[in-house]
Each structure stands twice: as structure tokens, then as C-alpha cells.
Amino acid sequence: MNLFRLLGDMTHLLSIVVLLLKIRTVKSCAGISLKTQELYVIVFLTRYLDLFTKYYSVYNTAMKLVFLGTSIGIVWYMRYHKVVKQTYSKDEDTFKHYFLILLSIILALLIHRAFDVIEVLWTFSLYLEAVAILPQLVLLQKSRNIDTLTGDYVFLLGAYRALYILNWVYRFLMENHKFRWIPWISGLVQTALYADFFYYYIKSWKNREKLKLPA
């Protein structure tokens, strides 16, 4: 465990805390893409298959349970909670996210490090996470005004994977890890998709103005 990875995990956890804070306190999920949340549940389910078969540390197991529990809880809130589900921007959350799942499955079957169930599903989870934010970004572009907590949530979610890239650089240099194409490329694509959001988020933060993405 290095500082970059710890910071990355904490940033990821914080993004989920911010999202839960928004949903629970404001009792609203306006501006949040249910499709992105559902994709994240699939990412965690397919990535943490070794939860009960491989033990790395208390931290690793605890964090996997937290990420699985909160992501499933958020989908439940947005789908079934009587108040919250009324606030879901159903008509604007229109991205065809099933294509993302299909593409990721095909890519994982074609490009992987080993052809066994755990490895292919793990690879699938990396490809899917790289594009999971797309429905959310498309929804943000349609939202006239993006509330602060939603903007902070997306920013933290993007920042965590950027920190993971630094963690991979560290592991490559300091732990003389071999270069791993799949996580690296997936992580770079994932972070690159946030590029223009980062630009407008930081600009709105500097100019103290409301966050607005160009349509």
C-alpha cells in the first residue's frame, strides 16, 4: 500500500459519502445518473469476486464490503425509496448503458491477461469502470443547474482514478512491478473522460460561479 493508493481509496470513499449525503439529507437524487450507479454495482460485483476466496488485508476486505454495500444501497434508494425515486431525472438519464456492458464483455473476452473466469471478469470490470461515468456526464450536460454536491461527487470520483494512476507509476518504479497494459490504459481512458468536466469544475471553483457544462 502506498500513499497514492490510500489517497485514491479515500477519495473514492469520500465521493460515495458525498453522494449518500446528498441523497439522504436532501432526499433527492436529481442530476444523478441511475445508470452510472448500476454500472458501478456491476463493476464492484465482477471485480470483488475474490472477496471470499483471497484475503489480502482487513482494509482490503472492509473496503470491498463498503464499496459493494454503498453502491447497491444507492441503486436501491434511487429505484425504490418512495421519496428519492420521485426526484430521479428519468427523462434525462437516457444513455444506452447496456452497450457499455456489451462492449466491455466483448473487449474482455478478446483482450485479457489470462483466460480464466476471475481474470476475464476482473478485466471486464476495469473496462466497464473506464466508461461507467458516461451516462452521468451526459446527464450533467443536460442539467441546467448542477448542484454543488453532485459536482463534488463527480469530481472526487474522477480524481480517485487519477490518484490510482500515480499509484501504478509508484508500483512500477518502486516495487519494480512489470508494466500492465490493461489497468493502465483503462485508467487513462477513465481519467481522460473527466478532462473537460475537471476543466469546467475547476473554472467554476476559481471564479466562484455555478458549475455549468456546455451542452
Binding site: R5, D9, N60, M63, F67, I118, W122, P183
Partner: peptide, 10 residues
């Protein structure tokens, strides 16, 4: 071993 392939990460 899997750690080698970042399976020890979240």
C-alpha cells in the same frame, strides 16, 4: 501470482 496483476487493489 495475482498480486502482481493489481488484484490486491480495490
Amino acid at each position: 501470482d495475482y498480486d502482481e496483476d493489481f488484484h490486491d487493489e480495490l
